[in-house]
Design a protein around this nucleic acid. Structure first.
Lengths: 322, 322
DNA sequence: ATGAAAGCGCTAACAG
DNA sequence: CTGTTAGCGCTTTCAT
């Protein structure tokens, strides 16, 4: 009836009635039932966001990018967390799709077959984010982690370092970290250099862990002249170890991390790192969904965009110039 | 019809039919429409979580606590971010309530009148989290920030520090930080001590900011013998400044932060801090909602629990023993 | 153990 | 401009 029109500012309604309805709604503390509305209109202003974790700083930042764009639209993000488990991802995705969202933003390109089938069949725009090394279902926005690994390797080699160690999480399911590692070792191999030491750890990536492990690695392989960390947090830990033990960085040993996190700017010596463009990734992904929101539900709802962002490498103070 | 029964494992269905239905569902890639389901059953397995920000580490951790409990239930969290703006909070809340969630977890005790009215009228369990200093709508789980500020002040005084500085964000809307500050200055006042210097900054709480501001404050008020930071991030920055400038901590100057964040354990000198129990807060809040999920919608849906957690103070290495 | 029928609270077309 | 009428895709209840 008319009430519906008023509440949605649609159709022609006289100011008098409008006022009357509004007043009544406020007085009754009326909150419309979106469930019924969505069912009737088959329009749901929700965007499903599926990410592996909230503990890893990186994802909240992607979320921030997403939110900043969606805030100017009627769309609202809904977050699902998978803990890096493919089966959780499948379950979370199923759950979210059953609410018939306007679009999906999902981290990574690796999903179970069932998950891919669901994404394909959903008939809504899908944006896979963070990574571009693989075959997307629909749109994709991210960086090439393989390339990022290669770039860092080249920079390190060019600076003259040769006894290079690597430190990263033992997460076979963190495909992006794996791809960086692969790109890194590939580029080294091309120059005839092999990783001199490596350490894969499990559990969170804290500064404390970076300190301990760096100390251990340096004890084990004293002639290392570089350590590449799979993220800035453990990298910061390594840097802290060197700083407090009077180890000359980047002279005696060079260090580099990954992500371009805020913490890097906090240290008196800035860790070499590579920006992973996560704010931008979130923004672009949200933009794609927003632009194709109307298409949701219609055949060919996808956007099929492919946006590869270019991470910038910053040498900071821990990687001497080549 | 029967299909519905199979998909929800309800009622008696013969194994043969069940198998047939399941097979067909899989083959067609059928995803049930929860919108219709929710409308028909007026049961929605969503828990609205309303928080001020995702950039502030603290909230993702609360989320992690919430998720860890809800994962064992059919309930799913849905996050809304308010950016510390009361009007955004109101809008986000309205939006979320219109989906008729099973419960609401919302940060803080300060809300607009309209928001409070909505929470009251929603007829579902509401848990206000993080803070217990105030009047809750229904349940509340958190710590007393006023008390936390007082405790830290007492500890500092007892250790013999007298020229005390304070550093915190300039956010009139961050009520918890404000309450800590009030508790802190109150306790000092009781001992006849006044804050010797203070600095309220705007923008994010980075380590870099902590370094700069500590340097500035120390230049401005050279005889300070203690700085209390409103969070561990800027505290870590301050500590870093002291470490790299050969300032004796905790002899020449003592330092303390707040939150008990992971970064504290990463430094060779552990910052004095106070655990804000955020994982536990998330868990308890989720538990309350889960336990009262069935009551949602019925009159008297609230749980009315009040859980005040006790933050533990750790002196670390930057606050000498009293 | 299965089918049929009546809504859930809205929106979308159409009449007045 | 405002009221009426069908559904949206499920769950629920009641028959069979």
């Amino acid at each position: 009836m008319t009430v519906s029109r008023v509440l949605r500012n649609r159709g022609d309604v006289s100011d008098a009635t409008r006022a009357r309805v509004l007043e009544a709604a406020k007085r009754l503390g009326y909150v419309p039932n979106k469930i019924a509305g969505a069912l009737a209109s088959s329009r749901v202003n929700l965007v499903a966001v599926v990410i592996p974790s909230l503990s890893n700083q990186v994802f909240p930042e992607v979320m921030t990018g997403i939110t900043s764009v969606l805030d100017d639209t009627p769309l609202q993000p809904v977050v699902g967390v998978t803990n890096y488990l493919p089966e959780r991802e499948e379950a979370v995705l199923y759950e979210m799709l059953s609410w018939r969202p306007t679009g999906v933003i999902i981290a990574g390109l690796e999903h179970t077959e069932a998950a891919i089938a669901m994404l394909r069949g959903a008939g809504i725009p899908v944006v896979e984010v963070m990574d571009v090394d693989g075959a997307p279902v629909d749109s994709v926005v991210g960086i090439s982690h393989r390339r990022a690994g290669r770039m860092m390797a080249q920079e390190i080699l060019q600076a003259g370092y040769r006894r290079i160690g690597f430190m990263g999480t033992k997460m076979p399911l963190d495909h992006r970290a794996r791809k960086r590692f692969e790109g890194f070792t590939d580029a080294l191999a091309k120059a005839g250099v092999e990783i001199a030491d490596r350490q894969f750890y499990s559990g969170g990536s804290g500064i404390a862990k970076g300190r301990e492990m760096t100390e251990a690695m340096l004890n084990r392989t004293p002639d290392l002249d570089f350590i590449y960390y799979s993220n800035d947090m453990i990298g910061a830990g390594g840097l802290l170890h060197c700083m407090t033990h009077g180890i000359d960085v980047p002279g005696r040993i060079g260090l580099a991390g990954f992500n371009g996190m805020e913490i890097v700017d906090g240290f008196p010596l800035r860790l070499a790192t590579m920006d992973s463009c996560r704010l931008e990734i979130g923004r672009e992904a949200a933009r794609i969904i927003a632009e194709h929101a109307d298409a949701a539900g219609t055949p060919g709802a996808g956007a099929g965009e492919r946006i590869e962002l270019q991470p910038t490498l910053s040498l900071g103070d821990t990687l001497r110039r080549g």
